[in-house]
Design a protein around this nucleic acid. Structure first.
Length: 584
RNA sequence: GCGCCCAUAGCUCAGCUGGAUAGAGCAUCGGCCUUCUAAGCCGAGGGUCGGAGGUUCGAGUCCUCUUGGGCGCGCCA
């Protein structure tokens, strides 16, 4: 659809210059904006003339009338598939009424020809992008916060790929530190050598239980914290027994977490482990000291002074030479660029860490890495529950697996209640897919920057602006097309009903929306458009016969349009990591 | 105390680089299944866009101030 808009923009520009030679072409190109009229009765494309009023010393309405007049004999033709139409002055606007039949024909046939590729673009062709997300700890299972992170990260990866980028999703597993030692200590103390297998427990939950156990233990015996610290020291010294236990418990945790990734459709091309990277960065910082971008104080501590850009002073290396979180991140960023030279690196991390990333990026810049300009922190807000904040200490954290189990169970009940379980065995599987659809859509419908309230009951609602609604619309199209296949090529009938045109308009703008969402790193833009499309289809489907239309020409075109809608839904849901269902 | 982010209908959220009468969903009320899946469709009510100034032909959108909320400001990660 963008093509049509640009074509018309050119036409309006030409008309403006013709009517008012004193306006220069380039000037117009910058000030002429393309809009959509508020009501479909006012046309399909709008060009406001306000900006030219002052320079031309004429009212916007006068200008609009003059421009529309010039365009009467100079409209774009349909020669190369571009739609004709007419330009009309409506008050201060020059509005374009497209030749709907021509557009309908072009758009539907384009989708039918491109099939699953419709929506892809070359906007970011050959751009190499690393996306880091998830980044779990190995002392406990994933929780609701990770689910938002994962949903965002995975969707951004998929959208960037659709825009033509070469994307490398990476994970950084935090498998070392005091928190793991706490789980280990409690395990040693209370487990009597039990294993996840013996207890038939998901292994990350098994490990997490000991972390919870530790927390209770420490509450009554504060002195155990000292023991945990000692365990960390032993680990750092490479104590074989400690190392072995550490390996075992990490394996359990990671095994369980990976199971959740598989369940939720998350995957990575490369997994980094902090135990392997935490010493990185030291050398680079020392180089920075030599180069004079960092400095040492009397005690030997290395600092970076960022007061000139209002970021204060930060420690980069302790006096004993050991690293910090920030130092590690400097190291891993450099390592990643060596592993796989990227054009852009996106960190999907909660917005609490904004400051951290500002400092990190600046440090890398001062170390002279040109690619530091292309580092990006995709910050997202917190997820809270209707009853308040999640506190790990108070046990109000929502476990990821439990949540999905609950959603799936409720979906299953709904399937049975509605008598949609004729297929029998399929039902639990379908319930799981609906649960994932509900969850991912709920998490992605809100823009990343905002804090959000996760309302489990609302997410489970199967009506309205939800994942299951989109899945349902997809299932209905699929079901219809199973009964009556769409032709491979269509030709639009002489007349289109309003609901049909609205739907075509959505389908036509889909690729542009994907590009927009990808470049904004914001899946909610896509989610909103898919919902609009689904709604437009529902209405069309409700109001007009498609497969059962009397006129074969109308029927074929509508089937083709429906198939186009199906392709859009499949493509879009895939980008949001929401399962497309053939039947529901 | 300093810094960053957020504030739109009762609730949860949209609102594209400033543009025509601020939109959805939920909830409430009322319609629509002998026809392609009613997990659907249609309609109604509901708003001083937190507040005050300013810039502009035009501000929910930009600037300043202010109120309320969130998050940061460790030689923690």
């Amino acid at each position: 659809m963008r093509e049509y808009w640009s074509i018309w923009k050119e036409a309006v520009t030409r008309a403006l210059v013709e009517a008012y030679p004193e306006t220069r072409g380039e000037l117009i190109r910058e000030t002429l904006v393309i809009e959509t009229p508020p009501e479909i009765e006012k046309g399909d494309i709008a060009f406001p003339m306000f900006p030219f009023a002052r320079v031309l010393k004429k009212s916007p309405a006068q200008i609009a009338a003059a421009v529309a007049g010039k365009m009467e004999d100079a409209c774009p033709s349909t020669d190369d598939g571009a739609p004709a139409g007419r330009a009309v002055a409506i008050g201060p606007y020059v509005n374009v009424f497209l030749d709907r039949v021509a557009v309908a024909d072009t758009v539907v046939n384009r989708v039918l020809a491109q099939e699953a590729l419709y929506g892809n673009s070359g906007d970011l062709a050959d751009r190499r992008v690393v996306v880091e997300f998830s980044c779990p700890n190995t002392n406990k299972p994933l929780h609701l916060g990770h689910l938002r992170n994962d949903a965002l990260g995975e969707s951004v990866v998929r959208m960037l790929r659709a825009a033509g980028a070469v994307v490398r999703p990476v994970n950084l597993i935090n498998d070392r530190g005091i928190h793991i030692c706490k789980s280990m200590l409690a395990y040693r103390e209370f487990s009597e050598g039990s294993t996840p297998e013996k207890e038939g427990k998901k292994p990350d939950h098994f490990v997490g239980d000991y972390y919870v156990r530790y927390a209770q233990w420490e509450k009554e015996n504060p002195e155990v914290e000292e023991r945990a610290r000692r365990l960390l020291q032993l680990w750092e010294q490479g104590d074989p027994e400690v190392h072995e236990l550490w390996l075992t418990m990490n394996r359990w945790a990671i095994e369980g977490i990976e199971e959740t990734y598989r369940r939720t459709g998350i995957s990575f091309e490369k997994v980094y482990y902090e135990s392997e990277t935490y010493k990185q960065g030291r050398e680079e910082i020392l180089k920075g000291v030599e180069a004079g971008v960092f400095y040492r104080d009397e005690k030997g501590t290395v600092w970076v002074d960022l007061t000139d850009i209002d970021l204060d002073k930060k420690v980069l290396l302790r006096a004993d030479g050991t690293s910090l979180y920030l130092t590690q991140d400097v190291g891993t960023a450099i390592m990643r660029h060596q592993d796989w030279p990227f054009d852009q690196l996106i960190y999907v991390v909660a917005s609490e860490q904004r400051y951290h990333f500002q400092v990190l990026f600046e440090v890398l810049r001062r170390l002279g890495f040109s690619w530091a300009e292309n580092l990006h922190h995709l910050a997202y807000g917190m997820v809270n529950l209707p009853q308040g904040k999640m506190k790990s200490r108070e046990g109000t954290v929502v476990d990821a697996d439990d949540l999905i189990d609950t959603l799936a169970e409720l979906a299953l009940q709904e399937i049975r209640r509605k008598g949609r379980d004729e297929t029998g065995d399929e039902s639990p599987r379908r319930a799981e897919q609906i649960a994932l659809g509900a969850l991912h859509y709920y998490l992605l419908q809100t823009g990343p920057v905002k804090d959000m309230i996760f309302n489990p009951e609302e997410s489970l609602s199967f009506t309205g602006n939800t994942g299951p609604y989109l899945q349902y619309v997809g299932a209905r199209v699929s079901s219809m097309l199973r009964k009556q296949a769409a032709p491979e090529r269509v030709s639009a009938p002489g007349e289109l009903v309003a609901e049909e045109w609205l739907l075509i308009h959505r389908v036509a703008s889909y690729p542009r929306v994907v590009s927009e969402a990808a470049s904004a790193l914001n899946p909610s833009i896509l989610a909103g458009h898919l919902y609009e499309t689904a709604k437009a289809f529902s209405r069309f489907y409700h109001d007009h016969p498609i497969a059962v239309a009397d006129d074969p020409k109308v029927r074929d075109f509508r089937l083709g349009l429906s198939r186009a809608v199906m392709h859009v839904m499949q493509h879009g849901l895939e980008l949001l990591n929401i399962p497309f269902l053939e039947a529901m």
